[in-house]
Design a binder for these strands. Structure first.
Lengths: 222, 222
DNA sequence: CTGGGAGACGAACAGACGTTTGACTCCGAA
DNA sequence: TTCGGAGTCAAACGTCTGTTCGTCTCCCAG
């Protein structure tokens, strides 16, 4: 076992890499199948069959099925958090450390929405993350609970942007905004599509972002 | 098999009923365990052991594990929809068939919030419903997708209350509101509690309802 | 050339799963 | 009293699960 194996995410879909190609194939197949069918509904055999590798590959490269799940989760949440933090940082730079509510919320909404756009390769990743929020095992939920520092930065920025609001009011409204984001699942989009008889298409990501920002920004004005 | 067995929900927790007591016990135990640990993480043996009945009871009284799941789902969603429809009807009566946005949203928010209050027996039921939205099998998701008529009444009322808004705008904002509701899970409350360092307690249901209505009503003003 | 570790592979493991079976008890109707 | 169905029960069924084992191939350092 070498110390720094080929990064599965970087070797994405490029099965030509001469080393650890099977590890990357397992990683990608697992993420996709988990995101589409749920964590418990996908067996190790499903993953290895889809990836075209041997059954024992999962346990050899990742230790266990749960460890594989957690590694996908850890990597993707880290990437999402990094992108959100970067946008929040840019908003701070743009507004001398005191960005308005809309810019803060954009840093929260835009990354998962961009990932979720139909033409984006990360569409699967965001579905995986959302799913891990409800189907994740104890380890994953613990990691989510521990990682409040990431959200705390957004909460602090919002408190600074709306100093007249009580702190707990800001926390609750941030909670509502997160609910808006996490509801962006395939099934929910389908129901909305049926309800509106085809009037609402989720294809236009920037338009959806504007809709969400309009709604949430107004919510913070209350 | 008689035609109208004792209603498990009515025989709730009263194991003294001389007939079909085990069916009610299975129903209650299953709902609680499913809500707490997830659908796939609870086995038929877990349910029957918790209910104190024989292993074969589930298949005898409900046909299969999936059928049991679906029966709990069907009953609870019907109860929730009925309560929401009743509140929307009352709001219509109060305002001559044209209730304001806040009253419509209250009919949407209040029932699940009331159920979710700590002292309420239905706290488990609402967790079950929320869970079924992401963990439900094909049959349950199909039932959710088909039942747009229930949501359509809320959408129509909102369109009537805000005629200056485009229809798809109203649909999207209703979608956002549903996200706010469905995010009210145990795990999410926990994270919010950690984030706010104990400042936000979910105990006061009416206060939470006010917070949600303030936020969502303002969102519809945008 | 040679030895050894990394990795892929088929096969098997032990356990948990949902479901089914057949016998037994009990009670109301004939 | 007798018959039959409803309900409970222990036991077993076959299947699918995650994981492990032993072996084989291949490549590179010695």
């Amino acid at each position: 076992m070498r110390d720094s194996p080929v990064d599965p995410a970087q070797a994405n879909e490029t099965e030509e890499t001469n080393e650890a190609a099977t590890k990357a194939a397992v990683f990608c197949a697992a993420e996709r199948l988990f995101a589409l069918h749920g964590f418990q509904n996908v067996s190790v055999r499903d993953i290895t069959a889809d990836a075209g590798v041997n059954l024992a590959s999962v346990n050899y490269h990742f230790g266990s099925k749960d460890a594989l799940l957690f590694e996908i989760f850890r990597r993707r949440t880290a990437e999402l958090n990094r992108e959100r933090a970067r946008m929040l940082h840019e908003a701070n730079d743009r507004h001398q450390g005191n960005p308005p509510v809309r810019d803060i919320l954009e840093a929260l909404f835009a990354p998962p929405l961009r990932w979720g756009s139909p033409e984006n390769d990360r569409r699967i990743s965001i579905q995986f993350i959302i799913r891990s929020r409800s189907e994740g095992n104890e380890e994953m939920r613990e990691a989510l609970a521990k990682d409040v520092s990431h959200l705390a930065r957004f909460a602090d920025a919002l408190v600074k942007a709306r100093p007249e609001l009580a702190r707990d009011t800001v926390y609750w409204r941030l909670h509502f905004c997160l609910g808006m984001v996490h509801n962006n699942r395939f099934a929910e989009f389908d129901r909305l599509h049926v309800l509106s008889d085809g009037a609402t298409r989720e294809g236009d990501t920037t338009a959806l972002l504007t809709r969400m920002l309009d709604f949430a920004e107004a919510g913070f004005q209350a």
